[in-house]
Amino acid sequence: MEYRIPTLANAAVATILLGLNALMFVIVPLVLVPSSAWWLLVLLPCALATNSMWFLAHEAFHANLMPGKRLNEVLGRALCVCLFVPFVVVRFGHLQHHRFNGALVDRPDLYDANRTWPPLAWIGYYFQLIGGFYLQEALSFFVFLLPRRLIPKAVRAGLSAYDEGSARIRDLAATTFAKPEIVRAARVDLVLALALHGLALWLYGPWWWAFALAVALRAFMVSFANNLPHYGTGTADVKYALNLRLPRAVNFLLLNFYCHRVHHHDPRIPWTRLPRVMREQGMEFDVGYMQAARAQFKGPIALNALNGR
């Protein structure tokens, strides 16, 4: 089935979110803070909008953001520059997530106790959960500063082939990230991201720490949301994910992202249609959002324990 991209709705949401970034990066330090330091509190709602921004970029990953490949990518890249993550990397990672959902490199909640020392798995898991996932995505920008011929080696060194799916993701990443157009796009976006964040730090002056805290909150929110609809689920069905129950207004503000199983069944469905398609297909919510969020703190799960459930 073909779905119409909700161009006006996406343009409106993008305008609001990019406006919040203009507020966070420029208007607060340049216009508001000089009159009163209390204006720094505006950074909190700006940072709390992070996941809506991430989920709108996610629409661009699936070419659901804007009609036309060029416009879709430009807007997706703009959102990612504001988040200080490389669009080419996060798009690749998410599309491989759909192909290889269950591969260990894609599932921080799972580990093979025969290959990974459990305490190390727990440390790595909580690092990922509280900000490490975002940090890894942000740092991947700097791989593209290497000579292009060295990028595949760096990618292979950075990604482990825990299982067949992980090995395939690593091989695809090594090939994809060395393509000239990918390297060029990542380098341009890195320059823009560094300029934007560097400008903000300079404008905040003695209040730089407030901006840094807002970015740290962004890192936590993105990392905490990354694996939430997949925590504790199996590895056999690549289309499986949890549908998480939220108040309708909150679900809307998060672009219905947590109607997640229906999204995995058909990534072409725009965010505006997900609840309706979910009802039409007879799907229900599996668990409440807060219950799923608390469950993540139970820690990583050994594969043999998961398979024994």
Rank of each mutant, 00 (worst) to 15 (best):
P45L: 11
W117D: 14
A37P: 10
F84P: 01
V89Y: 06
R91S: 13
H62L: 05
H94S: 05
W117V: 13
N114L: 00
F84M: 13
P34Y: 11
L41C: 12
P108C: 12
N101I: 01
V42F: 07
L32K: 09
W38A: 14
W39D: 07
M53P: 01
L95K: 11
P34I: 11
F92N: 07
L44C: 07
A49W: 03
L48I: 06
H98G: 11
L48K: 14
A78C: 15
M53N: 07
T116Q: 08
P108M: 15
P45H: 10
L56M: 05
R91Q: 14
L44Q: 06
S36N: 14
A47Y: 02
F100I: 00
N64V: 03
N64I: 02
A63F: 05
N64M: 01
R77I: 05
F87V: 01
E73V: 01
L48Y: 13
L40N: 13
S35R: 00
L43F: 10
R115C: 12
G68T: 04
F61L: 06
F55P: 02
Q96M: 12
F84K: 12
V105R: 08
Q96H: 13
A47C: 02
L44T: 13
L56A: 08
H94P: 04
H62C: 00
G102M: 05
L48Q: 12
P108G: 11
L95E: 15
W38Q: 08
Y111F: 15
G93H: 06
G102E: 04
L56W: 01
P45C: 09
K69E: 15
W38N: 04
R70W: 07
T116H: 04
G93K: 08
R91L: 07
V26W: 10
L110G: 07
T50K: 02
A47S: 08
V31D: 00
W39I: 05
L56C: 08
P29G: 12
C80L: 00
L104T: 09
A49G: 02
G93L: 14
L41G: 02
V33Q: 10
L56Y: 00
L104E: 15
V89L: 13
L83T: 02
A113Y: 00
F55Q: 06
A57G: 07
L30D: 13
P45G: 11
V33E: 05
H94G: 05
L120E: 14
G76V: 03
P45T: 11
V33A: 13
F61R: 03
D112C: 08
N101E: 02
V26E: 01
W38C: 03
L30T: 14
L32W: 14
L43Y: 15
V81Q: 10
L83N: 09
V105A: 11
K69Q: 13
V31I: 12
N72E: 05
L71K: 14
A103Q: 04
F100E: 04
P119W: 09
L65T: 01
H94V: 01
R107L: 07
L44I: 15
R77W: 07
F92Y: 10
S35C: 02
A37G: 15
V28W: 03
L71V: 15
N64C: 10
E59T: 02
L120Y: 04
L110F: 13
F100R: 10
T50D: 00
C46R: 00
V28C: 08
L95T: 12
L48G: 06
F61I: 03
V90M: 06
Y111E: 14
V33S: 11
M53E: 05
N101G: 03
D112I: 03
V42S: 00
A113E: 04
P29C: 11
